[in-house]
């Protein structure tokens, strides 16, 4: 088999179908990411504020938001007046477009 470097995924695709759960999971992540980033575009928010606004469980918002922080879409802002919850905001380098 002549293998083209940099384009090898297609060879494995022939023998290894992608399971449905994996595609479903990707759809869910992409949707949640969009929802969270859109909500943050309106202004800086804490995890409980995002959870309430988006009707999502708080732990789910926390997990996804912290992942977006790691991936460079979001950054940490100020802490609230009670020193309890941080505000999070869209990272200013413009990466949030995707």
């Amino acid at each position: 088999m002549e293998v083209e470097k940099g384009k090898t995924a297609k060879y494995l695709k022939e023998t290894r179908p992608v399971p449905k759960e994996v595609t479903e999971h990707l759809k869910y992540f992409t949707k949640t990411k969009k929802t969270l980033l859109n909500a943050l575009k309106e202004g800086d928010k804490t995890v409980p504020q995002l959870a309430e606004e988006l009707k999502l469980p708080k732990n789910e918002v926390m997990f996804q938001l912290m992942s977006l922080l790691k991936y460079g879409f979001v950054e940490t802002g100020e802490i609230d007046d009670n020193d309890e919850y941080f505000y999070y905001k869209i990272k200013s380098n413009g990466k949030s477009k995707s």
Binding site: V47, P48, N59, M62, L65, T76, E84, Y85, F86
Partner: peptide
């Protein structure tokens, strides 16, 4: 970003 509760991000 710091030590937080995984349940809701509270410090």
């Amino acid at each position: 970003n710091t030590v937080l509760r995984p349940g809701d991000g509270k410090m």
